[in-house]
Amino acid sequence: MSTILDREQWPARERAHEARIDDLTRGHRERAGRGEPHPVEDFLFHYYRNPLGHLRRWHPGARFVLAGAEERAGRRFYRMDDDAHLGVDVASFAAEREGVIARARLVLARTASRSAQLACFGLHEWAMVYRAGERPEAVRHPWPLRLGVGGTEDVVESHTIRCTHYDAYRFFTEPAAPRNTVTPTRERQPALEQPGCLHAGMDLYRWAFKLVPVVPSELVADCFDLARRIRVLDMRASPYDLRDLGYEPVAIETPTGKAVYVAAQREFAAEGAGLRARLLAELDHAGL
């Protein structure tokens, strides 16, 4: 049974969502207008490739239908019922996105079933530059290495790398890849994904976006907001020196830095668990 939002209720929700996305993306939009790259925030737009206009567009989700929304009747994956209420056409979405739905449910549920692993210390970013040199074309970001080439190599060689996320592992340098304790692949993702992984937390935004319009835009925005904050930790703990951009490093090569990283990682894992549960609940409600 869907809840009806009347003509006074749903436009207010729509405006609130648009304002929130405008606020969260203001810096990126202003920099993009100046042609100014950013090594931290650009990731969310370049890697996930979700159009900003689509992120800003509000969807009520499958739990709600809209009264007085006749002008939106032609939108994809929507239908008008006999009472002139506009709602998500779950059947047509399921028919066209069957593979995406199945993959999302599998990865989300398997990840939720595991305990968080909190001893990776963000070394995936270090493995992406290990023995690559400081040539701009050899590293992922044209920013100086905080410890230099030798210091970066020392950190990698003195630690155990435990990356479980394929989309991080696939960017490891060739010398770094054999140092990982596992060999993630796309096929093994459901078997390896775990909730302590920063990239698994950021990927909640990926899954939420793929499940629109069944998933409400407020949940997509919550996942996007978490991904933004996780990305900051990801890069603060990286080998890059980003202090000129206002990011104080989390020195994971030290006991203090490790403790700071794990504490933040634990908080993000808990927040991600809540969002993961909400995504699965939306699929359950829609019968997907």
Rank of each mutant, 00 (worst) to 15 (best):
Y130D: 10
L283G: 09
V215G: 01
A127S: 14
G133A: 11
R243K: 14
L123M: 10
T152W: 08
A127Q: 08
C223T: 10
H28N: 10
D225I: 00
Q189M: 11
K258C: 04
V149P: 02
L44M: 01
Y247H: 10
G196Q: 06
M202W: 02
R76C: 00
D6H: 15
A109D: 12
L226A: 05
A177N: 09
L242R: 06
L219S: 05
V214T: 04
G53W: 01
L108F: 02
D23V: 08
R97N: 10
Y247P: 00
A168H: 01
Y169K: 02
A168K: 03
F77R: 02
T173C: 07
V250G: 00
L288E: 08
E98L: 07
L226P: 07
E267P: 03
D82M: 11
G99E: 10
H54C: 05
S92G: 01
V155Q: 00
R236I: 00
E193I: 04
E187M: 03
A62S: 15
L288V: 07
A286P: 11
E14N: 12
P213H: 00
E267H: 00
A138W: 05
A62G: 15
P239Q: 09
G33M: 13
T254H: 03
T152P: 06
A132F: 15
R29H: 06
M202P: 01
H165D: 08
E193D: 11
A84L: 14
L118T: 01
M128L: 06
F209E: 01
D241L: 06
R31K: 14
E153F: 03
L5H: 10
G61T: 08
W207F: 05
W126F: 15
E253S: 04
E18V: 13
S2L: 11
E267D: 04
E137C: 08
G35N: 12
V220A: 11
A138P: 05
G246F: 07
G27H: 13
F121M: 13
C120T: 13
L280V: 09
E134I: 12
Y48P: 00
G201E: 06
C223Q: 12
T183G: 11
I21C: 08
A91Q: 09
G87D: 02
M80K: 05
M202G: 01
P51H: 06
V107F: 03
A32C: 08
Y48G: 02
F172D: 09
L66A: 13
R56T: 09
V214N: 03
A19H: 09
A102L: 12
I161D: 14
A132M: 15
T185I: 08
T173P: 04
E36R: 15
G287I: 05
G257Q: 02
D284C: 03
C223R: 12
R72P: 03
G133F: 09
R146T: 02
V139Q: 15
I161K: 14
G27L: 13
